[in-house]
Design a protein around this nucleic acid. Sequence first.
DNA 1: TAGCAGCATCAACTAGAATGAATATGGGCA
DNA 2: TGCCCATATTCATTCTAGTTGATGCTGCTA
Lengths: 146, 146
Amino acid sequence: MVAAAEPGKTTLAEKIDKLFQVVRRPDREPYSHEEVATACREATGESFSTTYLWQLRTGRRDNPTKRHLEALAQFFQVPPAYFFDDAQSLKIAEELALLGALRDAGVRDVALRAVTLSADGLDTISDMIDAIARREAGRGGARKGD
Amino acid sequence: MVAAAEPGKTTLAEKIDKLFQVVRRPDREPYSHEEVATACREATGESFSTTYLWQLRTGRRDNPTKRHLEALAQFFQVPPAYFFDDAQSLKIAEELALLGALRDAGVRDVALRAVTLSADGLDTISDMIDAIARREAGRGGARKGD
DNA sequence: TAGCAGCATCAACTAGAATGAATATGGGCA
DNA sequence: TGCCCATATTCATTCTAGTTGATGCTGCTA
């Protein structure tokens, strides 16, 4: 497996994997490597192979060039600083899930509706989400741990 | 294809050159390429040739790897983001600031949990929220709307 | 069960990032 | 003037980032 290096420090691979988990297609399915690579190619005009993206995500390669970092940042809508190991990237990592959620029409809608609920109501919804997530996880297939 | 780029956009070479102009030795003399390269080598433990640094500064090379960007950022005491085009980072920074608005822990939690749900799951949750909101509205106070 | 389709994975190769040794340039000094 | 030192520049070479094409896996359909 990919070495996690020191505790607290997340590897580039982990950061990229997190993006795949959080940033989804309009139909809520995770993007495939091929989709992302293709989108990066079209957005930047530069080349970006699916295999290489997989290598980066799984930690077999960990030293991409500026161009590739830019392409990934653009596609996933995060600042390039996210891929580096400084204070800013930590903050981004924390907000990443919510950031992704707000960009997604479906989740944004849920969040906006939730604002009007009482604390009790929110708890109920939270439990519901847990239940559904559990069911979908069992059906959907094993994703690497979060 | 390196090109001086559009007005307003500064190239990587210009950014690096600026660092040389601004960041000086204790005796106020500009650093030489060799000094910087050596310092980067010693700070990071990785290799960094003077020739390559010169190539980056003069624009002959413009696509360094993550490793080299990190080394330069460390030596010149700038965030790695400095080397990237900030047009898009700015936009995303705004979005990050917007996140502060969703301060309510409960809502935030709901949004975060909802991220991984499928489209169907989101629909279900959305309906649930509607139902609860209606009930609470009836109890608590008149909430006008749909 | 075979056959297809989409995707992850692997190994072999290519391109270009990065290096090292050699050469040019300029400035100070005998 | 000629030499020397320091740094900039060039070029050939090495090494690794990045690509290509093949292979295997999983789920679906007939």
